[in-house]
């Protein structure tokens, strides 16, 4: 094995310039997740992409036949549901990435140990990870948008901005996932979170029916739920109908992202460096 010790090895000892900038660190982490994910892309991406399409077929197309003609809020029912599903698919992919995915990397694969053996900061490691989740969110919301359009959703041209909203949604839910993961000791604890939090979020954030105007308490609850805001923004883009409320949703989404980002990094730093 050490047949050519002197030459080959001294070449390896040449001093090299290390790029320790924030950008390159984030890129390194992002690239790792990208390579691992795309290595088995079909197996990874098919189920989470099929799921929103099942919902679309069953609810928007199937159940849609029984929904009031003319749909909601000036959108046909198919278009209405599509405007929610593009966002909820981004939420699901991000949540999965930073709950089960992060936990497996943390506890079983010890991926972060390898990263911590380098100059990478904990914050760089997890921002890189959330940026990868955000990338997935942008791709997922784009794919769901295109497919639902093929099946009869008719969004306004403003929907070209939907991937941006999907990306922000994923970043937000990736940070929420990290916060949850930082407390979890056993992998099956996540089921409390997915069924107890994510499922109700999915149903009560206005994906399938307008939340507003039924009950006051429901209005209040839904406005507190983080998924409501990106869905309302997406819907505004779909119908090209922008109001002061749209701006408020943008502000709320931004605030959620900032707070959860800070909390996620603080919690994961504690968890990883101990």
């Amino acid at each position: 094995m050490s047949s050519s010790p002197a030459n080959g090895l001294s070449e390896l000892h040449q001093p090299i310039r290390l790029r320790t900038s924030l950008f390159w660190s984030l890129y390194g982490v992002w690239y790792r997740h990208f390579r691992v994910y795309t290595k088995t892309f079909l197996a990874n991406a098919t189920p989470p992409l099929l799921e929103p399409l099942f919902f679309f077929t069953a609810v928007a197309i199937g159940l849609g036949n029984y929904v009031q003609p003319g749909g909601f809020e000036g959108l046909s029912y198919r278009t209405f549901v599509a405007s929610g599903l593009v966002i909820s698919s981004a939420m699901f992919t991000a949540i999965f990435e930073t709950t089960f995915g992060t936990f497996v990397r943390l506890v079983f694969q010890k991926t972060y140990d390898a990263m911590l053996g380098t100059h990478l900061r904990v914050s760089e490691i997890f921002v890189g990870e959330m940026l990868f989740a955000a990338t997935k969110g942008a791709v997922f919301s784009t794919v769901v948008l295109l497919v639902t359009m093929a099946f009869g959703a008719r969004p306004n041209v403003w929907c070209v901005l939907v991937p941006v909203v999907g990306m922000l949604t994923s970043y937000l839910f990736a940070s929420i996932g990290l916060i949850v993961t930082s407390y979890v000791k056993m992998i099956n604890n996540f089921s409390f979170f997915t069924t107890g939090v994510i499922t109700p979020l999915f149903f009560f954030s206005g994906t399938f029916f307008p939340i507003k105007g039924h009950y006051v308490w429901l209005d209040v609850v839904s406005n507190v739920l983080p998924l409501t805001h990106p869905i309302e923004i997406s819907r505004a883009l779909f119908e090209a109908h922008f109001t002061p409320a749209t701006l408020a949703h943008v502000a709320a989404l931004t605030a959620y992202i900032v707070v959860c980002h800070v909390l996620a990094l603080r919690r994961m730093t504690q968890r990883v460096l101990s």
Binding site: L18, R19, W24
Partner: peptide, 10 residues
């Protein structure tokens, strides 16, 4: 390669 990027190599 992935690890080299963490380390800051191009």
């Amino acid at each position: 390669l992935v690890h080299a990027l963490y380390c800051g190599l191009d």
